[in-house]
Design a binder for these strands. Sequence first.
DNA 1: GCAAAAGTGTTTTGTCTACACCCATGA
DNA 2: TCATGGGTGTAGACAAAACACTTTTGC
Lengths: 236, 236
Amino acid sequence: MDLNRKQMSIIQYKSYDRLLVAVDCIIFGFDGTELKALMIKRGFDPEMGKWSLMGGFVNQMESVDDAASRVLNQLTGLSSIYMEQLHCFGDVKRDPGGRVVSVAYFALIKIDDYNEALMQEHNAKWFPLKKIPAMVFDHKQMMRLAQERLQQKVAQHPIGFALLPDKFTLQQLQGLYEAIYERQMDKRNFTRKILAFNILNKLNEKEKESSKKGAFYYVFDKKKYERMDKEGLKFL
Amino acid sequence: MDLNRKQMSIIQYKSYDRLLVAVDCIIFGFDGTELKALMIKRGFDPEMGKWSLMGGFVNQMESVDDAASRVLNQLTGLSSIYMEQLHCFGDVKRDPGGRVVSVAYFALIKIDDYNEALMQEHNAKWFPLKKIPAMVFDHKQMMRLAQERLQQKVAQHPIGFALLPDKFTLQQLQGLYEAIYERQMDKRNFTRKILAFNILNKLNEKEKESSKKGAFYYVFDKKKYERMDKEGLKFL
DNA sequence: GCAAAAGTGTTTTGTCTACACCCATGA
DNA sequence: TCATGGGTGTAGACAAAACACTTTTGC
């Protein structure tokens, strides 16, 4: 036998167990009032017909992150979604259909920004976080963890913009923060704080739907943010 | 064909790729002055002889967490180590020996608390965080992420005790925090802050090695801590 | 008695919180 | 002209940071 080292190692690795690796995505959206999560009716067994996170298996030739992007795209039609790895769930019996290790991701999308046809195809539905139904496997646990993580994350990084339209008013932004932290905030304090970060640009344009006076739109300034993000800001 | 749903689902899952799943552990220790990480000389190909994190493959019949515990135990001889999942690394080509998804964990141990024979067997060595050598695959990236996470975590949860002996002086504790955050702290402010959390018990016993006067030992009070931890404290 | 680390309070500074009124506009 | 949400400033409370001297004791 005349094996080189690379061949050796492949042979060596061969003796270990191979497992199914899945990704599951907690997809958050904000409708202006409430935080919601997107869930689908599971279309195959086990647990067919029950509510579930959108998920899929990782292919041999794709990275785990790519698998998550693919799954998000399959459901929403969107690419370049804000997405972050949450946790790897690896209990032996978490999925009664087999030994599946699942890597959970959470994603933030603009709630009106999706492909209606794809959503219907998957029987997808938005649920307010307060009214999450029973879910398959350990998906509820994933959900809870995602919500905690979102709170922590938003306290230090203004990723919340990913949940809002490109231009938004300060009140809409405050509404989002109130939804995430589940508490009321003072308008003046909020305004002062968020403007102090100097990551918003005020437009010369007003939103006139919800008031007679109209509220100025702001946009998120990505460059200013990146400069600032490295040091880590703290909102809460 | 007359398959029930469970059988169906297993068949369905069968068509997906199965991957090798590994765990890798970043093991932190504190020698009284410096924060260190424990690394091993890799004993098999690929990359045999290079520095590496301690790792291993996840077996079919064990959870990912259990695999990490097992790996930690193999190297240190210790069980019930403080351990936390860090991140799942899933790039296709991260390991040249094959398609391996690795779940990284970080662990905190008392640096004198290990089995010397096991350590030698694995060619393990402590490296100061400032002087980490080149490492195989993406292990350096894991290392960096672990260090960041440790900082964040310790700011909100006093897990640092896991790195110290059961009884320790306030100066030792401060030294640990200074090592983690890589900056000097004021003795008076530190003492006031840490005692205010009310999670330490003062012993009637002094450490007399490092000074003539001697410094009182303290112990960590787990019960008080757990009561407090739920709300989340903030040290920094 | 002196060297070496332990232990201990106060002042200043800055940040967070609570709070209320005028403004612009469309109907 | 009035009803509606938009926009703005200040004072008090609290927390963080800066700062230096006395104590103990082994040598």
